[in-house]
Write a protein that binds this DNA or RNA. Structure first.
Lengths: 169, 169
DNA sequence: AAATAACCGAGTATTTTAGTCGGATAAATT
DNA sequence: AATTTATCCGACTAAAATACTCGGTTATTT
């Protein structure tokens, strides 16, 4: 578990999917508009989400992405882990020979904290997030804005979920 | 709470202090050797730790740093927060007007997760970490290495607590 | 006076993050 | 069949964060 803005982007996008994707697939272009995330960046994130079987894609017009399973069965830990799958993950990971060929102190320690935070985030599903009062409130407001304003799309205008540079968890 | 390697470095250094600093202040040079963190980087980290009143400094020969209070009263959350005090923290932090002047979905959501993880890490003190069996074991082994080998320092050779690029919590 | 070690600021290399660009492929609509 | 839509893909780039260097100063001890 590494907690940075990247994971937040992913959770945001997935939450958008959970909120808007009930009547068919949602295009990344739509998410990009609502959440102000660049389309190409979303493509990169969704490539990883797809590899990890968290979303499924439908190509062609009217296509897009949908959750691979019901939103109660997708949790925040999985989403964050998926997009953080790093290329190298150097260091003492795995073998545990951190410096002089011996396991080190913080290695085990961090593994432990890691495990506990992972467990915590595993308990939070996309479904439970959509049930939150604040989420509902914001969602409704954004639907209205979408009706008044311009986005010619029947999906909800969640808009602007991101912004902070660091997650500041 | 932002969880990256930087926080891990800080926790590592502080744990070194907690383990070795019982008989007087510990120099950053000593920590640098044991933990293989660059001295100047440690200086930067400790400047922040000092500003946040987690350590106190003693200048001159034989000087160094010591914990500002007993290790049971210093927790992991404080350490990580101290070194992550970012310069700008842009975005929707604070006011909560993320994009179109309105509070956003993930803002509140993240605040919430943040709060819970913070609470969790607040419950883990340096003292409790030093009590762990694994920590003790590694610590003893490293003391032996220090006796056999070379580091001309009476403090324990914890050595090599860091290494992984990302915290991979 | 000399040595030690904190303190400080500016500068640098590397990595990660976020995003652009230019296309290729698949499916639906016309 | 041609066009449009949207996923898919790789390489490349700008900006930020991270980790570290360098060159000094100040305080304190021996």
């Amino acid at each position: 578990m590494k907690l940075t803005t990247r994971g937040r982007y992913a959770v945001t996008a997935m939450l958008d999917l959970a909120l808007n994707g009930e009547h068919g697939p949602i295009s990344l272009a739509a998410i990009s508009q609502r959440q102000s995330i660049s389309l190409s960046y979303l493509e990169q994130l969704f490539a990883k989400l797809r590899k990890n079987d968290l979303v499924a894609s439908v190509r062609g017009p009217g296509g897009g992405y949908r959750l691979s399973r019901c939103r109660e069965q997708i949790n925040v830990a999985d989403i964050i882990a998926a997009v953080n799958e790093s290329t190298d993950s150097t260091g003492c990971k795995g073998k545990g020979d951190c410096q002089n060929g011996e396991p080190c102190l913080t290695h085990q320690l961090w593994d432990d904290l890691s495990q506990q935070i992972h467990t915590f985030l595993s308990g939070i599903s996309l479904g439970s997030l959509t049930e939150r009062r604040e989420v509902k409130t914001v969602c409704e407001r954004q639907t209205q804005q979408s009706d008044e304003g311009g986005v010619n799309d029947e999906s909800i205008n969640v808009e602007s979920l991101i912004n902070a540079k660091a997650i500041d968890l």
